[in-house]
Simulated assay, not measured.
Amino acid sequence: MRMHFVASETETAQSALTELTERYGQHRWREADVVVALGGDGLMLSVMHQNKGLPVYGMNRGTVGFMMNDYAVGDLPERIAAAEETVTNPLAMTATTADGREYVALAINEVSLLRAGPQAAKLRISVNGRVRLDELICDGALLCTPAGSTAYNYSANGPILPMGSDVLALTAIAAFRPRRWRGAILPRAAVVRFDVLEPEKRPVMADADSRGVDSVRAVEIRSEASIKHRLLFDPGHGLEERLTREQFV
């Protein structure tokens, strides 16, 4: 098995990188059968954004490691061969700024809109070209994939989505009007548009997996079915099991 190892910059991850490459060798990315990521969830997201073909097997050398397997040096090819594969599609964001420029980015977890000033944001929400909410006054809102539903979405009291579900979660962040509006569950094929109301008075930024765009006027989001990210997990510890377990903690 030809493995390409990637590690975060921490001392723990770099030490693991040295140990594993000495034992199993290091193949170039384009020649490898699998990418082995050593770090935390931030590294995993970075690797997934760079890689759109090879399966990725992560081992936790970071903090939370929700998307990672336990770290062990021995029998790594056997573990990878026996691993369960989970496929996820990213979200494609097109953000239009105040000066008319467009920014396109992919998000594996979520696309979020956040107020960028002292006053609450005002957003109009449309789904498939139809206005569904004329005005949402809030700190922000986000649209997330099932893979990202336990991240920022869960912190904002959004629902955890099963991996096999063809749905996205639209979640409000500190909604003021409508009072306590929590959001909606939408089909994966839905195209969601946020229009920023009163953008000069109430500036808003957009963020796709920690890549931000300031002073947005409109953001359109859709699931990018043509891109598939392949994640590998040890048997019985796949992402579906982790999402279920998270709801009973």
Score class of each variant (00 low, 15 high):
D209W: 11
F194N: 08
F248H: 14
R2G: 05
E31L: 08
D166W: 00
D134M: 11
A208I: 06
M93L: 11
M1Q: 10
G212R: 15
R188E: 09
V56L: 07
G40K: 10
I137N: 04
T171D: 02
V6Q: 09
G62V: 06
E200C: 07
T150Y: 06
V216R: 01
K52P: 02
V87T: 11
A208W: 02
A72L: 12
G100Y: 09
T86K: 07
R242S: 05
E22S: 13
R28I: 06
D75S: 13
R2K: 15
R222A: 10
H4L: 11
R242I: 13
D207M: 10
A151L: 06
Y152R: 00
I80T: 13
D207H: 02
D195C: 12
A16C: 13
N51H: 08
G58V: 07
H229L: 14
T97F: 10
S46H: 13
L20E: 00
D234L: 15
P118D: 05
P178N: 00
N89Y: 11
P118S: 14
M1Y: 09
V131E: 08
A107D: 01
G164V: 05
V64M: 09
A120T: 14
R193G: 03
S112I: 09
M59P: 02
S226T: 15
R61V: 04
D209H: 07
N153M: 01
E78S: 14
A121T: 12
A16G: 10
G148A: 11
R217G: 10
P159Q: 01
F5A: 06
V249S: 08
T21W: 01
T244D: 09
R2E: 05
L232E: 08
A174Q: 00
L231R: 10
E241S: 13
M48H: 08
G183D: 00
V249L: 10
H27G: 03
D207K: 01
L43G: 04
G117W: 00
Y152H: 15
G238I: 12
T96C: 14
R211A: 10
V34H: 00
A172G: 15
M93W: 08
E198L: 09
K122W: 08
V192T: 14
F66S: 07
T21L: 00
N89Q: 07
V36I: 15
L123S: 11
L54T: 13
D209L: 01
L133C: 07
K52Y: 04
Q14D: 02
L232R: 13
V127C: 10
R193H: 03
L186C: 00
D209V: 09
Q119D: 04
A81P: 00
V216M: 02
V87D: 02
S149H: 01
R30F: 03
A116Y: 03
Y152S: 06
M163E: 11
